[in-house]
């Protein structure tokens, strides 16, 4: 019975992915991509990976979806409908043969590895030493904290890269207004944003706290915060900040810097990113709270895009 459910889910994932890739209209493609992301979230639930399911639905479907819709609206305003045009038949046939062969090889390789959760047995006895119960959080912030530290800097680097695309003269300005062009819709989004932002903040704070023992964590919580900020920004509840505000920059680097400082302080306790015995949970929660704030602000600004000239106008071009 479960197998039938898994099989149907996998077929739906492949179907929505195919439609998202090959439908002509760009907005339809993005809509199907969001559906695809949500089905992927269900797949992660099927794999009993609730942490990943949360991240996939919030980031993979939610943030990426908003990002693509905004990019498509900006392209449309420039006269580019982003419709998919066909390529030569010969290229398509060649690509089909090559990709089909690749899938067969990859599937054969995948099937030759028996699925197993060997490291789960390694991680489980180490968890009491950390004082937290969520094994994925344990891996992210203790056993493989190095990856997560670098990742937090990758996110910061991506924002710097996006900002570097600002046209000449626009620096240090505000990103183009992602707001609704239609005035009544903007008011609705504004009222909703006023309601949503505090709720998002509370929910995100809870997700970080719960992430120690239950599914959740800094990345999922940061995305919830980013979602609240974006809805508030779309309704004009909060203005988008210009990129040279000291407070904004402090919020962006707070998480990575605190993480790095605690990691370096660990040298005294035995090595880089080693937590002193007994303090592990306190330090992990401190890192997660600062990291969640930085991730939320960074993600919201990544979606908003680079500073644009004349972005102080209430309604430039954006219309989803």
């Amino acid at each position: 019975m479960t197998f039938a459910f898994d099989l149907i889910l996998c077929l739906m994932i492949l179907g929505t992915a195919a439609i998202a890739l090959f439908v002509r209209d760009a907005l339809a493609a993005i809509a199907f991509f969001i559906a695809f992301g949500n089905l992927m979230g269900l797949a992660w639930l099927g794999l009993d990976a609730v942490n990943v399911a949360l991240a996939e639905i919030a980031i993979g479907a939610g943030v990426t979806g908003v990002l693509l819709i905004l990019a498509r609206a900006r392209l449309l305003a420039l006269g580019d409908a982003a419709t998919s045009t066909g390529s030569p038949l010969l290229l398509r046939l060649g690509a089909l043969a090559a990709c089909a062969g690749f899938v067969v090889l990859l599937a054969a390789a995948v099937l030759s590895i028996p699925p197993e959760s060997g490291l789960d047995r390694v991680v489980a006895p180490l968890m009491p030493g950390l004082g937290i119960e969520n094994r994925v959080t344990g891996v992210l912030l203790a056993f493989r904290a190095y990856d997560t530290l670098l990742e937090s800097f990758v996110l910061l680097g991506a924002l710097v890269a996006v900002w570097s695309l600002a046209p000449a003269g626009a620096w240090p300005g505000r990103p183009a207004d992602p707001g609704m062009a239609d005035a009544p819709m903007r008011r609705v989004a504004g009222t909703f944003g006023q309601l949503l932002l505090p709720v998002a903040l509370v929910m995100a704070a809870y997700l970080v706290w719960a992430g120690s023992d239950l599914p959740g964590g800094a990345f999922q919580a940061g995305t919830v915060l980013a979602g609240g900020l974006l809805v508030a920004g779309m309704g004009g509840t909060i203005g988008l900040p210009s990129s040279d505000q000291p407070l904004l920059r402090a919020a962006l680097v707070l998480g990575p810097v605190v993480f790095l400082a605690i990691g370096l302080a660990g040298v005294a306790a035995g090595g880089l990113l080693v937590y002193p015995a007994g303090l592990a949970k306190a330090l992990i929660v401190t890192i997660e709270y600062t990291l969640f704030l930085s991730i939320g602000v960074t993600l919201a600004l990544l979606v908003a895009g680079p500073p644009m000239p004349g972005a102080s106008d209430p309604d430039p071009e954006g219309k989803g």
Binding site: V52, A55, E56, P115, S117, D120, L140, E151, L155, L302
Partner: peptide, 28 residues
């Protein structure tokens, strides 16, 4: 491949969460 008979390996899960965040940064 990390889904064993009775549990799911936390290591690939953590890797995938990291990967999802890096993917959204790249997409942006």
């Amino acid at each position: 491949l990390g889904r064993g008979p009775d549990a799911t390996d936390p290591f690939p899960q953590a890797l995938v969460i990291t990967g999802i965040v890096v993917a959204v940064a790249l997409t942006a």
